[in-house]
């Protein structure tokens, strides 16, 4: 029993770690360009400092949210086990559930960590002491954006407890790529499906933002999609365990 649990833990750690490897021929240039784009976002942050306080904050938050999503989807970093390795991926001693869920989870975690370190770090380093910070009433050393605001499009404390909103929005953010990732037969298309899903998501969320501008209707939409996301996620987890699949070997 004890040995079994250690084995399970090792598989979990091993699969989480598969989210991190660099794709071959991903030039340092591409990475630099990406960092440069983020830098531009940070610059944009400064340029809009003469807007009204609340609008500025919302726009800044949206910009960071969108760049986060872009980062998650851009295949600069590729999973270790890509289509060239689908046979090796299938041979790896882990259940389909473990492989799909943990590797995508791992990728989300690693990329998110990287994003926060780079973006927020950059932001803090470059712009501490700017008039914009002062106008927001924040002190030096504080995060420029409050992380709570980063993760939500709007919280409705009157409808439900705060934690429910958090959970729903978390699923909203994560369900689409997991949906796209798990529903494919092999890891062959996972990376691309992931990217397409996220691109669609970016477009959709931007559209929603501008239409509803954080109004009540938008928040209901968030709740609906959050539930759909949960259902989709559960369905795909079950599906990936029970499906019968053959590998083109």
């Amino acid at each position: 029993m004890k040995h079994n649990n250690t084995f399970r833990l090792n598989r979990f750690l091993g699969l989480i770690g598969t989210g991190i490897y660099k794709r071959k021929n991903s030039k340092t240039l591409t990475f630099t360009i990406w960092v440069g784009i983020l830098f531009l976002f940070v610059l944009l942050n400064q340029l809009i400092s003469n807007l009204e306080f609340d609008s500025a904050r919302i726009v800044v938050t949206r910009v960071y949210q969108i760049s986060y999503i872009v980062f998650l989807s851009v295949p600069v970093f590729r999973l270790t086990f890509n289509e060239q390795m689908s046979i090796q991926w299938n041979l790896l001693p882990a259940s389909a559930f473990e492989k799909n869920l943990y590797s995508v989870l791992g990728m989300l975690i690693w990329r998110s960590l990287l994003f926060f370190i780079v973006v927020l770090g950059l932001d803090y380093l470059l712009w501490s002491g700017s008039p914009f910070i002062e106008s927001m009433g924040m002190e030096m050393g504080q995060c420029r954006i409050r992380l709570t605001e980063f993760f939500t499009f709007g919280i409705t404390d009157t409808i439900m407890p705060r934690w429910v909103s958090y959970v729903l929005v978390f699923f909203f953010y994560t369900s689409i790529p997991i949906l796209a990732g798990i529903s494919n037969n092999t890891s062959l298309h996972r990376e691309y499906a992931f990217t397409y899903a996220w691109s669609a998501y970016i477009i959709f969320s931007t559209f929603i933002n501008y239409c509803f501008k954080g109004g009540k209707e938008y928040e209901y939409l968030v709740i609906v999609f959050g539930c759909a996301g949960i259902i989709g996620l559960i369905y795909n987890i079950i599906f990936s365990i029970t499906r019968s699949c053959n590998t083109k070997a």
Binding site: M85, L91, S95, E98, C245
Partner: peptide, 21 residues
């Protein structure tokens, strides 16, 4: 496939080995 208790008892070296980076 998908039972790690059993699949960890096998190591299969395929004919063509993949170019993993």
């Amino acid at each position: 496939n998908g039972n790690p208790n059993l699949s960890s008892r096998i190591f299969y070296v395929t004919d063509t080995t993949p170019p993993i980076h």
